[in-house]
Design a protein around this nucleic acid. Structure first.
Length: 274
DNA sequence: CGCTCGGCCTGTGCGC
DNA sequence: TGCGCACAGGCCGAGC
């Protein structure tokens, strides 16, 4: 579900609400979502502890506590995490409730229950493979045109599959990959090794632009995504190809096509993207 | 090592 | 209206 712009929006909207909050108890409605350590140890590590900062890496959200513990949350497809000041809530999919000293709570909700949570000392984050092997993120200094040109040149897979690979670029998901390829006018099935340096450079700028736009619109809400205050984003109104099957391409007027590439629903303009 | 595909889960929307 | 099926924003591990 949430990709980098959505997780970053959650981080920004949630930070003020949770930093300085002390957890009094953790209500585990679905304990199997805790991947590390045991459910009991997870609760022990964060109960009576105060959140000191909230960070993000790729699609992971990291809650730092005053005892150097980090609670790591990955929302996968349908996870939601938000602050609630009162008990009133009509969310059908609440799985974990972190109760705060101030009477409010941090809610983890998830319809498909694919999300994952961890708690561990900050110097043991390497245990989470997805974090330690993640590639550079869009909009970061490590993500450069040269990096993308060189990385694509030595790969043989389809460009769409490579952009979804978090080890190559951290934070992109299905929506923003389709949008980036559309902006860069690249066909999603292009073999990465055939992409020229000029095309890869264009793709670099397209990725940054698409991600920046996603963040500025507070993320893309198709169904499940909500920010840290439970509000929807608006970037769904600004997409060029994703979710626009059989609608006119905003660039050329031909119809947007939906196919399957790398096992994922894929939207593109067959006229503009080569 | 690099790449592709199935599985994990559950809910929703569409076609019949 | 009811039912079955395909599909869904992500990731990991098995197998080639």
């Amino acid at each position: 579900m949430p990709e980098m712009p959505e997780v970053e929006t959650i981080r920004r909207t949630l930070a003020d609400k949770v930093i300085g909050q002390t957890i009094t108890s953790v209500e585990m409605l679905l304990p199997r979502l805790i991947k590390w350590p045991s459910t009991y140890e997870f609760q022990a590590l964060i109960t009576k502890r105060t959140i000191s900062s909230l960070r993000r890496r790729g699609k992971y959200l990291l809650f730092y506590f005053d005892n150097d513990t980090v609670m790591v949350v990955h929302l996968r497809m349908t996870g939601r995490i938000y602050y609630l000041a009162s008990e009133i809530n009509d969310d059908r999919f609440i799985r974990i409730v972190f109760k705060f000293l101030d009477g409010g709570a941090l809610i983890y909700a998830d319809s498909r229950t694919l999300g994952t949570l961890y708690a561990l000392p900050s110097d043991e984050l390497w245990r989470i493979a997805g974090l330690s092997t993640m590639g550079p993120e869009p909009l970061s200094p490590e993500f450069t045109p040269e990096y993308l040109v060189e990385t694509l040149a030595k790969r043989r897979g389809k460009i769409k599959a490579l952009l979804l690979n978090q080890q190559i670029i951290g934070g992109l998901g299905n929506i923003y990959v389709d949008e980036s390829l559309a902006l860069a006018r690249l066909h999603p099935e292009r073999n990465a090794s055939t992409i020229t340096a000029e095309e890869a450079t264009n793709l670099y700028y397209a990725i940054n632009q698409v991600i920046e736009q996603g963040i500025s619109h507070g993320g893309t809400t198709f169904r499940d995504y909500r920010d840290g205050e439970g509000k929807s984003g608006s970037n769904q109104h600004h997409l060029n190809v994703y979710g626009r099957k059989n609608l006119a391409c905003k660039n050329c007027g031909n119809l947007i096509v939906k196919t399957e590439v790398a096992g994922r629903g894929t939207h593109f303009c067959p006229h503009c993207q080569q």
